[in-house]
Nucleic acid binder design. Structure first.
Lengths: 205, 205
DNA sequence: TAGATTGTTAATCGATTAACAATC
DNA sequence: TAGATTGTTAATCGATTAACAATC
């Protein structure tokens, strides 16, 4: 690959830029400067320019950035210029909330399948999708060509589910169980645990 | 205050240490070395020792850390050696999932009140709590002495809700709407947006 | 004591910021 | 052109790591 190694903090910020640009486009704004974008995001303008310069020259001196163009570039860089299907494992309250979440729309993702191991839940419909038996995971992942999954099961089952996902060929996982899961190289994982975020804030109170 | 300024990455890691220690105690482990803890968390042992040394000397040379003792120290440092009541705003699918979440238990938090502006939802019960009218927010926050809140409303309402929370005296906010909210100094805010996390991972695929 | 692991210092590494020439 | 803002360099700042004396 021609692309040099980009610092991870840069990659963490790009989705925030993209999110802000999508929002601005909804409000029909066409151009934005690094100054204005920085103010909206609480990030320094120099930081934004430096981050973007890792990938090319997307702005125009004296003017700023054409929002639609920058959005397309960011989508391409982040590989969300396509739609990734997600395997959602867990059809409890959290699974329902994720299945009904509006925020995936136009951001590169959709729920492709919902799985659970509870016979009470298997076969039930959530929105347009029928909850499938967890045991079908390998087939579902292969047949639908899924690479992304979300773990929304109880903590006690999260490790087992992660192993099954990885064995099935999933390459990117969002884990909602409050536990650190170790994954092999080549597999991405991120944990969403509101309590660690809360504990982080209370330190400062 | 006697406490010097602690680097923010340190404060971000402490809740992870605490979470791992709680888990180990459940499994009846009593002692752990920075080496072993680091392996579990994917963090270098030197990092862990350095982080902890910001606050005191909690270990014993040649042995490691007494887990129960370190847990108590971390709880104290993070101010979760008490229980913080949370004002949960939004009683939709996400609000339900949060209200039923088991993960708050023993980690310093509980849902103290649930509010919504939808007459259809007001008065309905979620677990033990009755959904209250959002307009009662200032009274609820004051009377219950709440400092922490969670925003689980549609994106279009998030800004308004955040302003109301801050006006009511809330000092720490978890925002589930995929939008950057600007808050005044002295108020902590963290955004939980699974899609930015997903977009971060797809970059690496 | 011998072995192990901490707490801490110094060195390295990496990220952010300031500043300005380039240029629209 | 004059004014504005980018892209980029160099300087600053901060965080991580390596190494080891202290000590249990």
């Amino acid at each position: 690959m021609g692309s040099a190694d980009i610092p991870t903090p840069v990659i963490r910020r790009l989705p925030l830029y993209l999110r802000a640009l999508m929002f601005l486009l909804d409000e029909a704004q066409e151009i934005i400067s690094s100054e204005e974008l920085g103010k909206k995001l609480g990030i320094s303008p120099a930081q934004i320019r430096k981050d973007l310069s890792c990938f090319g020259e997307f702005g125009k001196q004296g003017t700023g950035y054409e929002i639609k163009h920058l959005r397309e570039q960011l989508k391409r860089i982040l590989k969300v210029d396509r739609e990734w299907g997600i395997a959602l494992v867990g059809a409890g309250a959290l699974g329902h909330a994720i299945a009904h979440y509006e925020g995936f729309k136009n951001r590169g993702f959709y729920i492709a399948a919902i799985l659970d191991n509870d016979p009470q839940k298997i076969g039930k419909k959530i929105g347009d999708l029928e909850v499938m038996d967890s045991r079908l995971l390998p087939e579902v992942v292969r047949e639908m060509g899924l690479q992304v999954a979300i773990i929304a099961v109880p903590t006690s089952e999260a490790r087992k589910v992660a192993d099954a996902l990885i064995a099935s060929g999933i390459k990117a996982i969002i884990n909602y169980a409050p536990i650190t899961l170790n994954v092999p190289p080549g597999v991405q994982i991120r944990c969403i645990d509101p309590v660690t975020r809360l504990q982080n804030m209370t330190y400062y109170l």
